[in-house]
Amino acid sequence: MSFDKFQGTQDYIVSAELRDAVNVAISLERPLLIRGEPGTGKTLLSKSIAKALDKPIVNWHVKSTTRAQEGLYIYDTVQRLNDSRFGGGDVENVAHYIKLGPLGQAFDAKERVILLIDEIDKADIEFPNDLLNELDEMSFRIRETGRLVKAVERPIIIITSNAEKELPDAFLRRCIFHYISFPSSEMMKEIIKVHFPKIEEELMTQALLKFYWLREQPEVRKKPSTSELMDWLGALQRAGMSTENLKGNFPFLGVLLKKEADLVGIEKRVN
């Protein structure tokens, strides 16, 4: 196959299914939509792809107030008005007041870039629909100057979503979709080894047993995620905990459980 192939990177462990999905998206030039629990590495994925393929990355963090237009370009009318009234700036030149947004930058780039549209579901429900045409054509026209911004190299687009809002069907149809499941304990071991190369096998196994047990408890409202596990292992190591200490004891529970009610409930049962 004649395209850049993504294989994961040393510090980002990727499942075979996710790896295939990334490669399909790259090869078919479709946006890749990633969903999954918090802490499963949705955002990190794009960084890993950028690193593996050695391409620059453009980030677009979507907020509740973000509008599609901001991704393309912003025409700073207020600045221009101000300049025309009080002098300063190149008022005659409209282009001077046009600033490309993340999508515009990604299209305008000389080489192929990775465009991360992070947490697309945070924005207005209509937001994804407003981007359909631009994502299809990979181009848009700046109304004020008539300039056409067109991607020479179609960017690799990674979109993440926490499923806070339903995404419109028309938008979904254009995407390749992947759901990052919570890592199995096998895969988690690999991830841990990336972060803690020197960890003892026995300690890791014991810690994982406790960690997955905790995630299974129905009264835990906010299940601990990968990043919390890493913090916890870090805490265990720094405190010089050994496998012995873990037996019949659940130290540093507060690192894993962030909700007061969760912590109190579980604390009573384990310690």
Partner: peptide, 30 residues
């Protein structure tokens, strides 16, 4: 799109890969 992906050889003549491939293209909701 799935047919295009198959033509490009993404399924690798492997049913496991095809399972993931077809799902990532056809199914958009968990």
């Amino acid at each position: 799109l799935l047919i295009e992906a198959l033509q490009k050889g993404h399924a690798d003549s492997n049913l496991v890969v095809f399972y993931g491939l077809a799902r990532s293209i056809l199914v958009k909701k968990v």
